[in-house]
Write a protein that binds this DNA or RNA. Structure first.
Length: 143
DNA sequence: TAGGCCATCTGGTCCT
DNA sequence: AGGACCAGATGGCCTA
């Protein structure tokens, strides 16, 4: 997508991979030591790319299990983490309340769960501000 | 057009 | 020594 047009399956030296401003021709004419360094840099770039792709895959998995407020709007990474955090806290709270009031047959918690997506998204919107978020954390843990 | 978000490159540090 | 992880820099894409 970005500047480099590199293949994903590269592990050490990819023929299509080029260091910024370094042509394949230049690469071939380089002294062996410099060429070695260049190859290692390119391999490191490829590893870093794969690592970040793995991280993004994990973010996508997280997005799938976290509430979203719109089908079209994809949560940013930051928003995904914040949403996951407050989602977990909310579920935790539901469990705590079910333990406190329920005997196992009390499904009032389920009602809370149904309400969750609405409330949660509203909460999350409020979390856009760090100050409000801190307040939300305090409130959540105080229960 | 400015600002947000993102992918990629890069050099440094830590770990095995 | 080489790989994993991290953070800063850079530049592209998109939207208000």
């Amino acid at each position: 997508m970005k500047s480099a047009s590199m293949s994903d399956e590269d592990s050490t030296v990819d023929c299509d991979v080029q260091l910024k401003g370094t042509s394949k021709c230049q690469l071939r004419s380089m002294p062996a030591r410099v060429e070695g360094l260049t190859k290692r840099r390119l391999a490191a770039n490829a590893r870093e790319r794969r690592r970040m792709q793995g991280l993004n895959t994990a973010f996508d998995s997280l997005r799938k299990v976290v509430p979203q407020w719109g089908e079209d709007k994809k949560l940013s990474k930051y928003e995904t983490l914040q949403m996951a955090l407050s989602y977990i806290m909310a579920l935790n709270r539901i469990l705590s309340e079910a333990e406190r009031y329920g005997d196992g047959e009390d499904w009032s918690a389920l009602h809370h769960y149904e309400q969750f997506h609405q409330d949660h998204c509203q909460n999350f919107l409020a979390l856009s501000s760090p100050d409000v978020y801190d307040h939300f954390l305090t409130e959540s843990f105080s229960h």
